[in-house]
Amino acid sequence: MKLNRRGLIYLGTLGVASAVAKNAFASQAKEVKVADLASISPLKPVSFNYPDEESPAILLDMGKTVYMGVGPKKSIVAYSSLCQHMGCPVNFDSKSRLLVCPCHISIYDPARGGMCVEGPAISRLPRIILKVKGNSIYAVGVSQGIIYGRSSNLGR
């Protein structure tokens, strides 16, 4: 299965990442540049890691004002991209505008705080707090939950 393969690839990188302690992320929540505003277009997801390389995240411009959105239209949000059920990476389905986990079909709504609307996940996707500075977007913290695989959202 395609999506499973992604999971496996992710597993591979994880192994490497956890073997090497990274200094890019301090132990406290810190600012990480995600993208320039100009490079973001509606419904085109941007991948990044936060708070460290072990935890992939996804940034989305929903094209309209949404809960906790930032940017000129208050339309940009970001979430941990690891499913809160058992950690498979979620995919953005641009047709339904939902984040779908391929493993057991947990479905999350990025326009509504990442709440889970279907499937086995018991909580929302942790939301990456965003801040616009100048022409860029920065990840500055994590809200509402703990990122899959961790016991704290603080970086290494």
């Binding site: 994880l14 058992m86 498979c88 018991i122 703990i146 603080l154």
Partner: peptide, 20 residues
């Protein structure tokens, strides 16, 4: 209890302790 920094488990491991 144990305090762990960073990710301590991988996808589908059945080892993650969700806060709930």
């Amino acid at each position: 209890g144990r305090k762990v920094k960073g990710a301590y488990t991988t996808v589908l491991s059945g080892e993650w302790v969700h806060p709930y």
